[in-house]
Design a protein around this nucleic acid. Structure first.
Length: 263
DNA sequence: GAGTATGTTATATG
DNA sequence: GCATATAACATACT
């Protein structure tokens, strides 16, 4: 369950449960999900470290340690769990035994990743991530997004342009802005790009507030009923889908401008 | 069995 | 070399 709001929600519970805890024992049971080091080095580095804080950039979550940080990406199906007893989950990929309780990264599809990094800015720079979607200013958003000739949907998904927006929230922002996902980004006016940035921040923050429960989203949100064939939440048309930037986009061909006259 | 899925990245193509 | 598109990754579910 991982776009920016889901990761931020996970970070907040991690913060509550993990800050101040000491890591006693580490089990990294999936070598493919571990990046940067081998399992033995990974475990021995972590054991004995204390978790001093948490952070997030885009879809990346960080557990800050008294030395270095543990980066976690949830992929498509990753989730975090905090246990006090002998409980477990069906697809545990990383387990941190703590001085009190234990922390589990569960991920059936194994697209998630974890890695030791020196600190957040170093990782963000090395990875080439764009500014976090909740922190980016209007001017920078317009400059970065408006530069590309690609379809706006593909640009919003590009983590090196802006970090944190995924397929579902990109669709939501474009829907609320009544803009076709196919429109080349550089053809969008600065005024509309500014509105889009404000909308993105608003949608992401609202989702965080509702703990990413789509059922609780305000009436008129696409996320409540993002499904081909259903009525447009504005009642203007029927939702359809098309592949843009390699991902399925769901949109209303009637009210999202330009959508109907493109492939 | 076929198709699809909240993501990223290696590889192919222009 | 650069920008962009597609395939591949691994698993669950309809």
């Amino acid at each position: 369950m991982p776009e920016l709001p889901e990761v931020e929600t996970a970070r907040r519970s991690a913060h509550r449960r993990l800050v101040g805890r000491r890591i006693v024992r580490v089990e990294a049971m999936d070598g493919k999900m571990l990046e940067g080091t081998v399992s033995d080095e990974f475990a021995s580095f972590l054991e004995g470290k204390r978790i001093t804080g948490t952070d997030r950039h885009g879809k990346h979550l960080f557990l800050l340690l008294d030395e270095g940080a543990l980066r976690i990406h949830l992929g498509m199906s990753g989730s975090l769990h905090f246990f006090s007893e002998m409980e477990s989950t069906p697809h545990q990929r990383l387990v941190l035994e703590l001085d009190r309780g234990r922390f589990v990264l569960d991920d059936p599809r194994r697209f998630g990743r974890f890695q030791l990094v020196p600190d957040v800015p170093t990782f963000v720079a090395e990875k080439g991530l764009g500014p976090d979607a909740l922190s980016i200013g209007r001017d920078e958003f317009c400059a970065r997004v408006g530069r590309s000739g690609r379809a706006i949907k593909a640009v919003l998904l590009d983590q090196t342009v802006v970090a944190g927006i995924g397929n579902l929230y990109a669709d939501e922002v474009l829907f609320q802005e009544k803009l076709s996902p196919f429109v080349p980004a550089k053809t969008i006016s600065v005024a509309r790009l500014e509105m889009m940035r404000d909308r993105a921040v608003q949608v992401l923050q609202e989702s965080i507030r509702l703990q990413t429960d789509f059922g609780l989203m305000p009436v008129g949100y696409l996320l409540r009923q993002r499904e081909v064939g259903r009525a447009c939440p504005r009642g203007d048309g029927v939702l359809r889908s098309s592949v843009v930037g390699g991902r399925t986009s769901i949109y209303c061909p009637v009210c999202q401008i330009g959508a109907s006259k493109l492939p």
